[in-house]
Write a protein that binds this DNA or RNA. Sequence first.
DNA 1: AAAATATGCAACCATTTGATTGCTAATATA
DNA 2: TATATTAGCAATCAAATGGTTGCATATTTT
Lengths: 106, 106
Amino acid sequence: MRRDVFQAIADPTRRAIIGLIALQAMTPNAIAEHFDTSRQAVSKHLQILVECQLVKQEQQGREIYYQLEVAKMKEIDKWLEQFRKIWEDRFNELDNVLSNLKTNKP
Amino acid sequence: MRRDVFQAIADPTRRAIIGLIALQAMTPNAIAEHFDTSRQAVSKHLQILVECQLVKQEQQGREIYYQLEVAKMKEIDKWLEQFRKIWEDRFNELDNVLSNLKTNKP
DNA sequence: AAAATATGCAACCATTTGATTGCTAATATA
DNA sequence: TATATTAGCAATCAAATGGTTGCATATTTT
C-alpha cells in the first residue's frame, strides 16, 4: 500500500476533491455532498490524499477540516520539468522552420 | 477500460518508459531491456500509453518505434495551472509578511 | 526455403482498488 | 442527561490492474 502523488491524482474523484479544497478547507461531509458516492468512499479518498501528504487535516471540535498541501503539487510540476524543456524545444524548431520558409521566399 | 493521461502516469514503470523514450524513439525490445519485467509486460504498458495518446507508434520494417507525444504531456501541465496560481500566491503572501516585518522595524 | 527475430494477442492469475454496509467513538445540542 | 451529528474503522465484494505463459504473424537473415 505504498502511495505516491501520481497514484493519488490518478483517480478522477480524488482530482475533483483536490480542486474543491484547493481554495478553502472543508469537512468530509461537506466534500461528500459534492459527489454521488458515499461519505465513506470520500473519506477513503481523503485518507489516501493524507497518506501521500497532498492534503492535511486540522481538527476543530468534532469537525476535521481537510486542506490542500499546495506545495506537494509541485512534485508533479517538478517531474514535468524535464518534458517542458523538450516541448519548448519542439516549438523552437517549428519557429525555425517557419522563419526559414519566410527567408527562402523569393 | 477508459484511460486518461493521469491513469497513464500513475504507474512508475510507465513513467520510466516515458522518460526513456522522451528524447528518442525506441522499440519494445530495446525498452524492455531497461526493466526487470518481461517484454510482454512492457508491451502492455506501451499499449496503454498509446491508448491515451501519450505515445505514438511508427512502423519501420518489422520493428515498431515508440515515441513520446510530448504535446500530450501538456494536459497534465494544464491541470496543474490552477494550482500553480495558488502556490505562487502563497509565496507572495509570504513575501508580504516578510516585507511588513522589515517595514515595521524601528 | 528455413531459421531467427520482433511483435502482438489471448487466456489466466494474484493483488490492488474503489465502493458499500455496519459499527464505534467523540463532540455538540436539546 | 438523552439525542443528534461528525467522523473513523473493519469486513466484504466486484472490478480493474499488472504480470506471466503460450501461441500466431510478419519481416529479416542465412
